[in-house]
Design a binder for these strands. Structure first.
Lengths: 224, 224
DNA sequence: GCGCGAGTGGCACGTTGTTGCCAGTTCGGG
DNA sequence: CCCGAACTGGCAACAACGTGCCACTCGCGC
């Protein structure tokens, strides 16, 4: 493992090695297990295996005592009914699950604010995982991941709203114009499209969120 | 220095050493300078000094070319008029400034997705800063900080919001009608007031939040 | 090329929202 | 009682938004 280990971090290759060399980290969680990922694919089978029955202290869904298992995903995790069922199962097992509006390009885990695990790029070869133990770095990572956790909303409030489709680049710019309080005419000019097309976009957006007035659309669309 | 440096990170003590040993990192930013902090105290004088005139490429407030200077703070940075003025100045200089609803316990900077700097605890002795260069760790930190950035809202939408007055009972019911997507006519009937008066209420609300369209009002009023 | 479907932009017209103006009401001092 | 301030509701003119219709352009497959 070279220099890294002595200095506070080590890179592992592939999920198998992660489970073998760091699996006990997961099972050793006592206070908090904070986990962020784009969807349910990462940290999948192997990592969960490390949490095999009995190897994990009892969860505390709400407060006081036990382990706080906190998982934050993006909307990608809400895509299909299958994912939603798995999410519901996770939540039912006592974990706190939230959905972040922001993208999470790299998966991350922080255990008891003492160890952080960062997933590497999926690009080439087996996936890598970097285990970080340097206190200041772990604290920094925890701070950021916790901020994302705090800013996310409970999955229970999202399941119904799951029908929300992803917004493409154009939709976001239309949203920006609407949020800026521009009139349709000004907004269309700024975005370089005709008034008619701009209004088509707005109508499409409103239909997408099921709003019947622009005010309602603004409320529903806030934060996306 | 020790093992850390060879392995990808090094801890510096005090802001003076940070500027001396890592100041050129700041000035070397080319693509993106992403910075998260609870308030305007950290990264204060010393770090800004590293950005002395001419040592920094031109900013690109919006798109294409130049350096994207992105700063995300918590609401603590909005406390007093003095802070607000400094924030406004930062934004006016071409930086993109956002306010995160979540706490940021530790300050963090990521430069060009190549180097991360994490502030240590303020608890004992001079403040420490950890400079991280290990690619996977930096990418992971960037991913998290960027997620916080994405989830935060533009400071321009927050400055006015500081002075948001409390809403009385009637205002809340008007808000409810608006959020329900009713037309003015239906809303006025439901609330038992005339169309004219209802519209007066709406106009008052919009003026109170400084919105120029109902959509914008919906965005600004969300969650109150 | 031809037909086809998707997307765009112009136009018209209906609906909804915004505002000034004024008359009527209520309430509290003088 | 009278006055004025604050509020309400009706009316009207105007601005803004919503949408159906049609002509036009692209790109695609035959």
């Amino acid at each position: 493992m070279g220099h890294g280990e002595a200095a506070g971090f080590v890179t592992l290759r592939g999920e198998e090695e992660l489970v073998r060399r760091a699996g006990d980290l997961f099972a050793s969680a006592r206070e908090e297990f904070l986990c962020g990922a784009a969807d349910l694919v990462t940290w999948s089978g192997g990592v969960n295996a490390a949490f095999a029955d009995g190897k994990r202290p009892p969860l505390r869904p709400e407060r006081e005592g036990g382990l706080a298992m906190r998982k934050v995903y993006t909307r990608r995790a809400l895509g299909d009914p299958h994912s939603e069922r798995r999410l519901a199962a996770i939540a039912a097992s006592g974990a706190q699950v939230r959905i972040s509006a922001a993208p999470l390009a790299r998966e991350a885990i922080v255990v008891d604010r003492r160890v952080a695990i960062l997933a590497g790029s999926e690009a080439r070869g087996p996936r890598t995982y970097t285990v970080v133990r340097a206190a200041d770095v772990v604290e920094g990572i925890h701070s950021l991941l916790y901020a994302t956790w705090e800013a996310a909303e409970d999955v229970a409030d999202c399941l119904g709203a799951a029908a929300l489709p992803e917004l493409d680049e154009e939709a976001r710019s239309v949203l920006g114009a609407l949020s800026a309080g521009l009139t349709d005419e000004a907004a269309a000019r700024r975005l370089g499209m005709s008034l008619r097309t701009y209004r088509r976009r707005v109508a499409g957006l409103m239909a997408a969120v099921g709003a019947t007035s622009r005010f309602q659309a603004g409320v529903r669309v806030r934060g996306r």
